[in-house]
Computed example of a mutant assay.
Amino acid sequence: MTADVWLPLPPDEIDGLPEGPRYHYWNGAEEYPADPADCAFYVVPYMTPDPVTLRPLPELTGVQVVQTLSAGVDFLLPALGQLPTGVRVCNARGVHEASTAELALTLTLSALRGVPGFVRAQDRGEWNGGFRPSLADRTVMIVGYGSIGSAIEDRLVPFEVTRVIRVARSARTTERGPVHPFTDLPALLPEVDVVILSTPLTDTTRHLVDAGFLARMKDGALLVNVARGPVVETKALLAELADGRITAALDVTDPEPLPREHPLWTAPGVLISPHVGGPTSAFRPRAERLLADQLTRFVNREPLRNVILTTGS
């Protein structure tokens, strides 16, 4: 197969790329490495502003595959109309599960055990002890039980949680037990000590965590968001945080990046990390393996992995 492939990683640094395509390195530079009309396989640059990554789309008139290196493809959806019909859009399932699940546990444990307060006390030279909540013997809900949600549960098990409640868009059964549909949330939320959000951002999940959702959370519960910022209605969250009824640990926010003067920075009981669920040392080797496998499948005209949608369908 002779086709142009645009990669955001230098091709000579990726083991296992198949022979045949013409590989071009483009990570968002102002100048394109080749004519976009000749690009058949476009790998979207990772952690690059949306206007940059979406800029080539109208000119990718011959593209067949758009591959992201992120778990979510929500940033692409508004621009899909600029692509030809029949383009397969693939996400990076298999790349971010470990690192995102690690962060979910890090945020949960840090928020429960009061680590932010310890760090501030250290800065002041103060020794502040006392009892804090434990993750052990708690009921945890995972909202968005896909590959990342499953990886989060893998890491919860050793911490001796009492129960894990799995929730997704539709009901199903797994080896670990049932997955409840979103419609069960009102009945389930009052039972939960920690809610971890790992759902994709879609029309269904935008503001899924609204005032009604938050009001049903039990007093003292913790909300952890490693999904997307707009899954949570920020105004409603601020209202619940104001009186200290619940706490939150957020890797993603709405808006994002969070402006310097935004009230979330100073809201009581909030731990914020700057959307770092994916970018770790685990990213690069997993991303390279995914690209080598996908491009081998593409060259050999085999089914691709992780196809989320096909344009025009």
Rank of each mutant, 00 (worst) to 15 (best):
V5I: 06
W6P: 09
P11L: 13
D12Q: 14
I14D: 00
L17Q: 07
L17N: 11
G20N: 07
G20Q: 11
G20M: 04
P21T: 01
Y23W: 12
Y23T: 08
Y23M: 08
N27T: 07
N27A: 12
E30Q: 11
E31D: 15
Y32C: 01
P33Y: 06
A37W: 06
D38F: 05
Y42P: 01
V43G: 12
M47G: 06
D50I: 08
D50M: 01
L54S: 13
R55W: 07
R55T: 00
P56Y: 10
E59Q: 15
G62L: 06
Q64G: 14
V66M: 00
V66C: 05
Q67S: 10
L69K: 08
G72R: 01
V73M: 07
D74V: 05
D74M: 03
F75W: 14
L77I: 10
L77N: 08
A79F: 05
L80N: 07
G81I: 00
V87T: 07
C90G: 09
N91V: 06
A92G: 09
R93H: 13
G94W: 03
G94C: 09
E97P: 09
T100K: 02
L105F: 11
L105E: 09
L112C: 10
R113G: 13
R113N: 15
V115S: 07
G117N: 13
F118Y: 13
Q122E: 12
Q122R: 12
D123P: 04
R124L: 12
E126D: 13
G130D: 14
F131I: 10
S134I: 03
A136C: 13
R138H: 00
G146M: 03
S147L: 00
I148M: 00
S150A: 15
A151T: 00
D154G: 03
L156N: 08
V157M: 05
R163H: 13
I165K: 02
A168N: 13
G177F: 02
H180E: 06
T183L: 13
L185M: 09
A187D: 14
P190V: 02
E191G: 00
L197D: 11
L197Q: 06
L201K: 01
T202W: 08
T202I: 05
R206C: 11
G212H: 10
F213M: 05
L214Y: 04
D219I: 02
D219E: 15
D219M: 02
L223T: 04
R228S: 04
G229I: 01
P230C: 01
P230Y: 03
V232K: 02
K235W: 10
L237Y: 07
L238P: 02
L238I: 02
A239Y: 03
E240Q: 13
L241M: 04
A249S: 13
A249L: 10
E256T: 04
P259L: 00
R260F: 07
P263S: 01
L264W: 00
W265P: 00
T266V: 02
S273P: 08
S273A: 15
P274G: 01
H275T: 02
V276I: 14
S281E: 14
R284L: 15
A287P: 09
L291T: 15
A292S: 14
L295E: 13
F298Q: 09
F298E: 07
F298H: 10
N300A: 15
E302D: 12
E302T: 11
L304W: 13
L304P: 03
R305S: 11
N306Y: 11
T310C: 06
T311W: 03
T311A: 07
G312V: 04
S313T: 15
